[in-house]
Amino acid sequence: MRRMARIAAILAFLAGSLGAARAETLIAAMSSHQILITSNYTGSQLTVFGVVERDGRTVARGDPYDIVVTARGPRRMLLVREKERVGPIWINKTQRRFPDSSLFLTVASNRPLSEIVSPETARRERVGLENAHRTRDAALDLDTTTARFSDGLQRILLEKGLYSARERGVTFLSSTVFSAPIEVPATAPTGSYEIEIVLYAGGVPLARQTTNFEVVKSGMEQRLASAAHDLPVVYGLVTVLMALLLGWLASVVFRRD
């Protein structure tokens, strides 16, 4: 119920701001800016709401509006390794580094990306999953080994549910108001996430807006994880003592002699 009320409030705010518009701009808000991991956490969902502002002076467009919402997770250095055959066995041999790669990436749009933007624009603007790991330097993209590793990385993360592309992930509630649910799986790492919302018409980006949210451990989970890192001696001793205590308890409870 609280969530519904919150969504209604956001929509009311968006509707109110419509009147004050001067030119074609994008306004976006989120249902929440924080996902708390508790002991029963199994993933979460956020919703991005937005409105395309336009007034009398805004040029009439023949093409409908398109929205692409890209959510990116914490960036880390990723190592991608490839198994190769050495004699009779398969072992990890070659590896490629992908510095500053997002561990989570989801691209939602109101229709397939190929219908919204041309492949060239998509590449230049880094729109879509396949362009996420591309460098701006076109020469590097021609390196087939890097491309193979990049494809492998994308495939693995897609399979783990950390990467996703949803061609109907954005819904227009009216011709100018839209919403896009963002699914955050339980395996998504903790950290800060950024969301970029881009308005397109006729394959041209017209306006963009960014916002963010964070995934944090809370309560017991947060205390345990930080204890493991900040007080490893205490954490280790507590774990060991607990293990010994449970072992002793079992021998007392089940003692038969």
């Binding site: 880390r76 250095m77 990723l78 190592l79 991608v80 390794r81 490839e82 198994k83 190769e84 055959r85 009779p88 066995i89 398969w90 072992i91 990890n92 580094r97 561990l103 590793f149 492998g152 990385l153 495939r155 693995i156 993360l157």
Partner: peptide, 19 residues
């Protein structure tokens, strides 16, 4: 296990240094 060709030859790990 190590003798059968892997279905997915690639694997991804997060580099330790940046954590």
């Amino acid at each position: 296990e190590p003798f059968i060709p892997p279905g997915e030859p690639f694997s991804v790990v997060i580099s330790e240094g940046t954590r």
